[in-house]
């Protein structure tokens, strides 16, 4: 028996919008820890890891570990039927091949049940090793989204370089090239507007902008984004999901042939 009640249902709506472009089908795993997902895109270039901790739910009942295979486009169709202020409850019985999404309006005057068929998905779970990152950049998520969007109109790849001068995003294409430098800036009115650069050593990595742009679909979830870089490792682009968890996108770098 599984029953997860999320008062801030809009978070789940935003989570689906954030990952459905990257991943088609995925297993949602429920355990005492929380509600999680790990999945790669079809080319195995990017990986998304979602965690919504059990403490973040108003009610969290998960009698035994459960893995539920879902088509994310179909989940998104279901969740789009929930109002932004609705409370969303996920329910599944042991051994059932369906999951039920229940939507309650804030004043309880409308209650809807949407039942969705589950599917069998063969997915391999990857171990993500703990890493020491050479540089960690925290910046406004809207600024990062703007940079990725702007650069993708010039080129296909972005070089992200962190030095003590700041973080530089560069691209080049047929029509020319572009460089955007963001310096550390902590003298802002609100903490979420700050750009904070923690650098152990300079790092420079090249990534496909198409994936970066896809990650920025998570922008509505959080005012800030954290980008962790180490040479020879996938970049981690992390968006917090309120105070209950995160979405982490891992993207493999483009490397010298």
């Amino acid at each position: 028996m599984l029953e997860l009640r999320l008062v801030q249902g809009s978070l789940l709506k935003k989570v689906l919008e954030a990952i459905k472009e990257l991943v088609t089908d995925a297993n949602f795993d429920c355990s005492a820890t929380g509600f999680s997902l790990q999945a790669m895109d079809s080319s195995h270039v990017a990986l998304v890891a979602l965690l919504l901790r059990s403490e973040g739910f108003e009610h969290y009942r998960c009698d035994r570990n459960l893995s539920m295979g879902m088509n994310l486009n179909n989940v998104s169709k279901m969740l789009r039927c929930a109002g932004n202020d609705d409370i969303i409850t996920l329910k599944a019985d042991d051994g059932s091949d369906t999951v039920t999404f229940m939507f309650e309006s804030p004043n309880q005057d409308k209650i809807a049940d949407f039942e969705m068929k589950l599917m069998d998905i063969d997915s391999e779970h990857l171990g993500i090793p703990e890493a020491e990152y050479h540089a960690i950049v925290k910046m406004p998520s809207a600024e990062f989204a703007r940079i990725c969007k702007d650069l993708s109109s010039i080129g296909d790849t972005v070089v992200i370089s962190v030095t003590k001068e700041g973080v530089k995003f560069s691209t080049r294409g047929d029509i020319g090239n572009a460089n955007i430098v963001c310096r550390q800036n902590t003298t802002v009115d609100k903490p979420e507007e700050a750009t904070i650069i923690e650098m152990q050593e300079p790092v420079s990595l090249t990534f496909a902008l198409r994936y970066m742009n896809s990650f920025t679909k998570a922008t509505p979830l959080s005012n800030t984004v954290t980008i962790s870089l180490s040479s020879e490792l996938p970049v981690v682009v992390e968006y917090k999901v309120a105070d209950m968890g995160y979405i982490r996108f891992y993207l493999a770098p483009k490397i010298e042939d």
Binding site: S43, V45, L126, P129, Y250, A252, K254, E256, D257
Partner: peptide
């Protein structure tokens, strides 16, 4: 020329 690497070459099943 740079080539796109895959996540599976950094993270292994487990």
């Amino acid at each position: 020329v740079r080539k796109q690497s895959q996540i599976t070459s950094f993270f292994t099943p487990g």
